[in-house]
Design a protein around this nucleic acid. Structure first.
Length: 115
RNA sequence: UAAGUAAGGUAAAUGUUCGCGGCUGACAGUGCCGAAAGGCGUCAGGUGAGGAAAGUCCGGGCUCCAUAGGGCAGGAUGCCGGAUAACGUCCGGUGGAGGCGACUCCAAGGAAAGUGCAGCAGAAAUAUACCGCCAGGCAGCUGGUAAGGGUGGAAGGGUAGUGUAAGAGACUACCGCCCGUCUGGUAACAGGCGGGGCAUAUGUAAACCCCAUCCGGAGCAAGACCGAAACGAAACGCGCGUCCUGGGUGACAGGAUGCUUUAGGCCGGCCCGGCUGUUUCAGGUGGGUCGCUUGACUCUGCCGGUGACGGCAGAGCUAGAUAGAUGAACAUUCAUGACAUAACCCGGCUUAUCGCCUUGCUUACUCC
């Protein structure tokens, strides 16, 4: 899975490293972990547990998060590893709600470029 | 027309912009990443989840392992015949149950091989006399009796009669049961005839069990190939020290052991610096490629069959990801879009599901 200027996180140990060393914050729908990776690019991982819903629900949320990041990619700083975790409340949310939730967490983490 | 019954179809549509996975073509390049295996760009075109993709409950293909033959254990199935690669599936029958009917449902072998279990009620549950009836006796009671009452899911085949002290298959008729035989049917079974008074006989086998048939195990994270690393083997190799043997106390040769430097290798654009025996074989971790979609395939037509299905001919190619591709925005219409996302591939079963549509048949009513 590709983004114009980013890559996706694949290995489980990458996720574990970010959970262990990264900073986290959360709102109603999402949790965001951030860790500097020392690379020029960002790497994004998305995690939706089975608690959230069945396969269709989880795929839907994954796609909304991915689309939100893709369209807002320019606003994020570079050189970050990020993991987005969907919470149970994210089930059934619209694209606009997920998008604003992601941007909100980005501002809390200080990884959104200031205009 | 209404109610019902059976079978089947569909699973919102269209457009614009942005985005993703395969595929094909063009362009870029003797370029980049990687030790290698191998992979990578841009543009265009076309293509890209389901009827259940689900549950993972059966069956098969495929792969590896095991396997002379046979048996035990364990598991599954269980009326008959057929279909099929196979099945616990499907089709057609038989028997039973329900429904006016169309039609639906059935785990439908054996309880005259053995063991177990059967609450409460009831006198008694596979043996026996509570009430009653009859006989005897003054009476307590004794004997006969399963017709009647009562209990129970079930009480010693049922109904009617003969018979009797009262009764009883004790006897008779019909029904049932068992045995034999004949006819029809491939068979399950159906029908007829004759015999047996009926002994074996309450139910339960989704209790053990018996009988018949079938089953080797694990699964694509199977497995095959390429291959950093680790573990291992062999060959080769600079200098020095110590010890042993031969030699003359030397030079030299061989062996054991230890250390160090250089060459070489790695990190690096180069220097400094740091690390390190080298090569080959073997090995198979991280990684990569294949397996991976042309198949018991789909569509159309004809033929055979009651049907499941089979045969022939023609046409077609319809996801192949590997942390896992179908999404977002806007507009319009119907409407307020249910259940639910392939993961090696097929055949089934089961379960979930908003609606809409089609066809056959049944019953009732009306009209002709």
């Amino acid at each position: 899975m590709k983004y114009p200027h980013s890559e996706s996180l694949k290995k489980n140990r990458d996720f574990q490293l970010i959970y262990k060393e990264g900073k986290s914050c959360a709102n109603r729908y999402l949790v965001l972990y951030v860790r500097k990776n020392g690379l020029a690019k960002n790497r994004l991982g998305i995690s939706v547990s089975k608690k959230v819903g069945n396969s269709v629900v989880r795929h839907r949320i994954t796609r909304l998060i991915r689309e939100s990041y893709r369209l807002q990619e320019d606003m994020f700083n570079s050189g970050l590893d990020m993991v987005v975790i969907a919470r149970v409340n994210a089930k059934g949310r619209s694209f606009e709600e997920i998008r604003s939730a992601l941007l909100h967490l980005g501002k809390l983490q200080g990884v959104i470029k200031k205009e």
